[in-house]
Design a protein around this nucleic acid. Structure first.
Lengths: 202, 202
DNA sequence: TAAATAACATAACAACTGTTATGATAAAAT
DNA sequence: ATTTTATCATAACAGTTGTTATGTTATTTA
């Protein structure tokens, strides 16, 4: 209860420091200062820095995943998949901080095999989620039946990842409707050929 | 000559440490040790660590860009654009190290506005290159004339970035022919309607 | 040949790092 | 009411960091 809450407060303080100072400059002392307390709090709720970092990464991912689930409920068909993807895109400025932490952790994983495996687990998990959605669409004959589900799920994730990275580096690179347009077009390229059409906005 | 060569040797040693130990653990001493010499060499060829890191990032980008230019020469039309993109993809294992350093620097930029601006410059430069290629294709009526060139260039870069990141995290995620297939399909979605396998509503 | 500079090595510097131990205080449990 | 536990503060630890100064030795240059 109160225990878990405090753990989350520490984690959120860590996020803020990561975004403001950089992941490698996010020291125990910096987190404690951001939290307005001493390092005793940090060391009390986390065995060591590794555990804190792993938990922080875990929370970022779960926040994104929760948003995906929420956007999926009650929807069906192509729109369901679309909304699930839209949920993780940095459509508004409020989505950028999460992406910043995500990109920071991706770079931080280079040279840290343990963290790479953590990322692998999460990408694999995401892939399975999208894969299942694609399989449902395939069963409903809404998308072509000759496509490689795993490949297409990974491709969709790659596009989202690229857009997220682009926005992190340059917030004005992709406007919200441009992000949606690109994802929609990508998904439409999977549609059954009879229905295949791309409406071009001008 | 010999001056510049030595600078590059230091930079390459830095790359190896970055890939093996992580960017934040790439200290002056670690680079010197990787080079088989003392820190005196490193401090002699670089004013400070910032200059070294900036130069290392610069070199990674220029290596990728050189490969792009090489793959473009002598080619024309859609194939030219395709080959330019293929050149920067991690199609073989030999392309992965460069991408690892790239991803490491992307994450390293979070919380470092100066580095973010460096990345912006490079993404903008890449965008202009692709933009020019798309404009040429448009002038030759090989792709539709109603597409937003900047958006499509950024989208192509985002896809490549996503694939590169995916391969860095999981080398088996995208096989070479899958990478090529995804890029080819993305480019085909820009083709003029008469040649396109996808019908376009206007 | 003499002087100047480039190319390194070594060492010391203060600042910062994660970790750990020790206390203090408040809440909970007995 | 007493003991235990949770919560936090403080401080010291050994190790690492970038930077800088001071050497030493080649290589150019004049």
């Amino acid at each position: 209860m109160s225990y878990s809450d405090r753990r989350l407060e520490v984690t959120e303080a860590a996020w803020r420091v990561i975004i403001r100072e950089g992941l490698d400059r996010t020291s125990m002392r910096a987190i404690a200062q951001e939290l307005g307390s001493s390092t005793g709090v940090v060391t009390h709720y986390f065995r060591d820095k590794d555990e804190l970092m792993l938990f922080a990464l875990e929370r970022v991912f779960e926040n994104l995943f929760e948003d995906m689930k929420t956007s999926a409920t009650g929807r069906h068909g192509i729109e369901r998949l679309e909304q699930m993807i839209f949920a993780v895109l940095p459509l508004e400025a409020s989505g950028v901080p999460g992406w910043k932490v995500w990109v920071a952790f991706l770079g931080y994983a280079i040279g840290r095999e343990k963290l790479v495996r953590e990322h692998q687990k999460r990408y694999e998990f995401l892939c399975q989620i999208i894969c299942q959605e694609l399989a449902d669409l395939q069963a409903a004959k809404l998308i072509r039946d000759d496509i490689d589900l795993t490949l297409e799920a990974n491709a969709l994730i790659a596009l989202v990842d690229g857009i997220g990275t682009g926005v992190v580096i340059n917030p004005q690179q992709f406007k919200a409707d441009q992000q949606r347009y690109l994802v929609r077009r990508h998904i439409k390229s999977l549609l059954a050929t009879s229905n295949s059409s791309i409406s071009v906005k001008r």
